[in-house]
C-alpha cells in the first residue's frame, strides 16, 4: 500500500521546486560558497510539497483512500526521503566530478566546508535533523506548515553556522575535514558514515513518530 501512496505522492504532490532544487547539487562548482545551503533548499522543497498539499486537501483526500491513516504519514516521509537521497547522490556525483576535473587548489572552499566525503556526511546530518524536527511537528497540525519549517530550518542554520565557525576557528579541523578527499580520507569517510547512520536513524524515527502522531490527529 505504501508503494501506491508513493505513486500518488509523485503523481499529485510533487512540487516543481523539488526537481529544481535537486539541481542545486551543482552548487559545489561555485568557488568559495557555503555549499551546505543546498540542504536548506531541500527542506524548502519539502515545505512546498506540504504547503500545496494543504491547499489541495491532500492529507484528507489520502485518508479517505483505503489505507491506514499512519501509512499516509509514512509515505510522505518516504517520498521526501527519496528526494533527499537523490540530492545526496547528485551532490556526491558532482563532488566526484569536481575532484576529477579541478586542480586541488581549486577544490578547497575558502568560504566553508570543502565539497568532499565529510561534506556529504554533514549534508546527511542536516537532512536528518530536518526530518526529525519537521515531520512530527507537521503531522501534529498539518494546517500550520510554516512553523515546523522555520524551526527545522533554524536548526539547520545553527549546524551550518557551527561548521563554518569550526572551519575558521580550528586549523586542525580545517586541515583534516576541509581538504580534498585525497587527504585524511579515513577521517572524512568516518564523518560520512556517521552522517548516513544519523540520517537513516533520524528519518526512521521521524517516520515512526509522525505515524503515531498523525493517527491521533484531527483532520
Amino acid at each position: 500500500m505504501t508503494a501506491k501512496l508513493l505513486k500518488k505522492e509523485f503523481a499529485l504532490c510533487l512540487h516543481p521546486t523539488c526537481i529544481l532544487f535537486l539541481l542545486f547539487s551543482a552548487f559545489v562548482f561555485i568557488p568559495n560558497y557555503p555549499y551546505e545551503v543546498m540542504f536548506f533548499f531541500s527542506g524548502l522543497s519539502v515545505f512546498f510539497v506540504c504547503l500545496t498539499g494543504r491547499e489541495n486537501g491532500d492529507l484528507t483526500f489520502s485518508c479517505t483512500l483505503p489505507v491506514r491513516k499512519q501509512d499516509v504519514a509514512v509515505a510522505r516521509v518516504l517520498f521526501c526521503n527519496i528526494l533527499q537521497v537523490a540530492l545526496l547522490v547528485l551532490a556526491g556525483l558532482m563532488t566526484a566530478i569536481k575532484e576529477c576535473c579541478l586542480p586541488e587548489a581549486a577544490q578547497v572552499n575558502m568560504a566553508g566546508t570543502t565539497a568532499n566525503l565529510a561534506f556529504l556526511g554533514y549534508g546527511a546530518i542536516l537532512l536528518g535533523a530536518f526530518n526529525l524536527i519537521f515531520f512530527p511537528m507537521y503531522f501534529k497540525n498539518s494546517a500550520r506548515v510554516g512553523i515546523p519549517f522555520v524551526v527545522a530550518a533554524a536548526v539547520q542554520f545553527v549546524i551550518i553556522a557551527l561548521l563554518v565557525v569550526l572551519r575558521f576557528a580550528s586549523p586542525a579541523y580545517a586541515e583534516i575535514f576541509c581538504a580534498p578527499d585525497n587527504y585524511f580520507a579515513v577521517e572524512k569517510a568516518a564523518v560520512f558514515i556517521v552522517g548516513i547512520v544519523f540520517y537513516a536513524g533520524a528519518t526512521i524515527f521521524s517516520a515512526y513518530l509522525s505515524a503515531r502522531i498523525f493517527k491521533k490527529t484531527d483532520l
Binding site: K4, K7, K8, A11, L12, E55, N56, G57, D58, F61, L65, P66, V67
Partner: peptide, 19 residues
C-alpha cells in the same frame, strides 16, 4: 478542492490504483 492543478484523468488514474 482536491488537486486543483491536476487533470481529471490524472486523479482518476491515481485513485484507480487503490481499488
Amino acid at each position: 478542492r482536491f488537486y486543483a492543478q491536476k487533470k481529471v484523468k490524472t486523479l482518476g488514474r491515481v485513485v484507480s490504483t487503490f481499488y
